[in-house]
Design a protein around this nucleic acid. Structure first.
Length: 287
DNA sequence: GTCCATGTTCTTTA
DNA sequence: CTAAAGAACATGGA
């Protein structure tokens, strides 16, 4: 369920509950959500203090006072909450960390696509490309330039750029007026620049609205996001485009539904009359 | 019963 | 080697 804005909102809302707290006990109700298999999570973390909580891509990274780390990935339906220990456990609660304060950090995940990943001393960056906020556009251009895949597929690839998912890729492509099937290595520099700005803008706006709640997502205190009300294309197949009223098209790409406006996001690059190589009688070129 | 779902990874196919 | 497509994981809602 969660992409960068949702994961960041969870981190922000969870941090005050866990920072500097000692982990008093661990209740692991399903051992198979922990990776790598065989790691004794309780042995590693009970008695340790949480000294940092941050987001990297869609990973929620816990740093302990002995320098060891682990992260939680929410997968599609995962939730992390700070709950009073007396509260009854929701269905599909797989892990509860009891803190010295008496609060519990609970990980609930119906579909179990998420999990707890022990890092130890390893970096949390493995397999991840750069963060999209504050990403310089030439870096994005360089990375897109190395692949012949289509834009949608490239932007969903966490190793190429980290943190985007189905919602924000569609929204960013709409914002920048780029067709999801455009080849990643065939964008003009100005188009990459536009795309980079749009990605940043869409994520910032989503963050300001505490993410998008479609079904499962809530922050650590149970609060829903509101950005779903501002989606321009995601989930709006068949609706009129908010910009030009053309019907928004929905196609399936990589098994994921992809929504875009066929008028605002043309399949072929827009020809710019003044620039580009002249085909017919060349107008006088300034030089 | 059917289809769909905010994610990732593996296998198959071209 | 590259990439696209499909399936898989497991559950629930419309």
């Amino acid at each position: 369920m969660p992409e960068l804005p949702e994961v960041q909102t969870v981190v922000n809302s969870l941090r005050p509950h866990v920072l500097d707290q000692r982990i008093a006990s661990v209740e692991l109700r399903r051992a198979d959500i922990v990776s790598p298999v065989g790691i004794d999570l309780a042995l590693q973390i009970v008695g340790r203090r949480i000294v940092e909580l941050h987001r990297r891509a869609k990973r929620i990274v816990f740093t302990l006072d002995d320098g060891q780390r682990f992260y939680i990935h929410l997968g599609m339906t995962g939730r992390l909450s700070a709950s009073a220990a007396a509260l009854p456990m929701a269905k599909h609660t797989h892990l509860a960390l009891r803190l010295a304060s008496g609060m519990q950090v609970r990980f609930v995940d119906a579909r179990r696509f998420g999990g707890v990943f022990w890092l130890g001393e390893q970096s949390e960056d493995e397999g991840l490309g750069p963060e999209p906020l504050n990403l310089p556009w030439p870096t994005l251009a360089q990375r897109l330039g190395h692949t012949r895949r289509c834009l949608k597929s490239a932007l969903l690839d966490q190793a190429l750029i980290a943190g985007l998912g189905n919602i924000y890729v569609d929204e960013a492509l709409f914002e920048s007026g780029l067709h999801p099937l455009r080849r990643a290595d065939r964008l003009a520099p100005a188009e990459v620049q536009r795309l980079c700005t749009s990605i940043r803008q869409v994520l910032r706006r989503a963050l300001a609205h505490r993410g998008s709640t479609l079904r499962d997502y809530v922050d650590a205190e149970g609060g829903a996001g509101a950005f779903q009300l501002l989606h321009n294309v995601y989930g709006h197949g068949g609706d009129p485009c908010p910009r030009c009223a053309t019907a928004i098209r929905r196609i399936v790409l990589q098994g994921r539904s992809t929504c875009f406006c066929p008028a605002c996001q043309p399949r072929r690059a827009q020809r710019r009359p003044a620039a580009g190589p002249a085909i017919s009688p060349a107008p006088a070129r300034r030089r």
